[in-house]
Design a protein around this nucleic acid. Sequence first.
DNA 1: ACCTGAACACCGTTCAAGT
DNA 2: ACCTGAACACCGTTCAAGT
Lengths: 219, 219
Amino acid sequence: MATTQTRPRASLSPEQVASAALELLDREGLDALSMRRLAGELGVGTMTLYGYFRSKDELLDAVVDAAVAEREPFSSDGTWQEQIRRLMQGSRRNLSRHPGLVKVRADRPVLRPEALRFAETGMTILRRAGFDRTDAARAFRLLFTYVFGYVSFSPDERADQARRDARAATAALPPDEYPSVHEASAELAEAMAGHETFDFGLDRIIDGLEARLRVAGRA
Amino acid sequence: MATTQTRPRASLSPEQVASAALELLDREGLDALSMRRLAGELGVGTMTLYGYFRSKDELLDAVVDAAVAEREPFSSDGTWQEQIRRLMQGSRRNLSRHPGLVKVRADRPVLRPEALRFAETGMTILRRAGFDRTDAARAFRLLFTYVFGYVSFSPDERADQARRDARAATAALPPDEYPSVHEASAELAEAMAGHETFDFGLDRIIDGLEARLRVAGRA
DNA sequence: ACCTGAACACCGTTCAAGT
DNA sequence: ACCTGAACACCGTTCAAGT
């Protein structure tokens, strides 16, 4: 039989390329994710990747989609406050799974269909809670900003490192020029990362939205 | 007279290099800020810059300091709510003046002495308002996250572009799969940027903190 | 002492050529 | 048709040499 002994050329799919890119991003960070490195890891020539994606930007869009697709299922049990709480905590968990990706997403509008499922779920909860369209849109934007901001500025891998750095930085300040920071040095360091700080902020936001709903309901 | 006709070599200061870098960053964005470009604009060899800063990272730290130093004076008139509101609005204005810098700051802890003046002012207001050290630290972190998150994900130059992109993205979705987003398409687009959306979120956060203070005060 | 060109180990992408 | 090496125009930084 004359079957070909040489395997047919790699013959990747765009999905395989994107998921290899996500894996490389998670493993070695954003700086390591270059077209040359990725092609090397896939065992193909660099320019082969341009057969699947027109540019690195297009590849990054696909990587974002691949990560967002891992989303956990959402159950709409409980009060709107409980639902919003669970949705945002789940979103933070998803984003934290791929810390390198948050920087990528800050560069492009979070408007791909997969990402907008998050908006759809959030807007549905807020509208059912009684917010009008304008308030629901602004409330969603507030929650979105908080979750994405938290993951951008309080990463939870290296949380201990962040606390140590904060402790060292505040300890080095002249106490007379920075009395309030100096006095709360330990508490500020503790609040630099972790889910307690995230939950505290999320609960204050939900309380503030609840107050808004009461005022709007009376009007 | 035998005065030297050739000007003494450029003889820059680190501050001059940092402020030229900030100017280049504002003018052409983060990608344009390379050691080679910057040296070229200053009319010196690339390696000359390494006499002022040991690395590009160290230069970027100095650029952040230069931008933060432009901070507006802060007056402590009014209630704590009014003070927090003014402080955060001022911080957003400062950050918006140098949009390219927000990405830089997401990569490094916001812990330089100049940046911690913002924390000092915020913590002083919150402590005077009656928050204990733990709550004040978490409340400050919430406010910080919101302001930095907002500037990262809702830039206000190209606000109209962001709204148009959002409008196009939501209009392209199947209405039956995305009913809530589709229904509030106009409101979501409007809420993608601008100071109304920022102020709405900030006011909800302040209301939520106020509620917390009432509960803590009763305990 | 102060400055810097050449070199090294990288980038993303175009273009022309290989099978 | 599918894949890719060479080349171009860039990076940050080390090192040795220039004045």
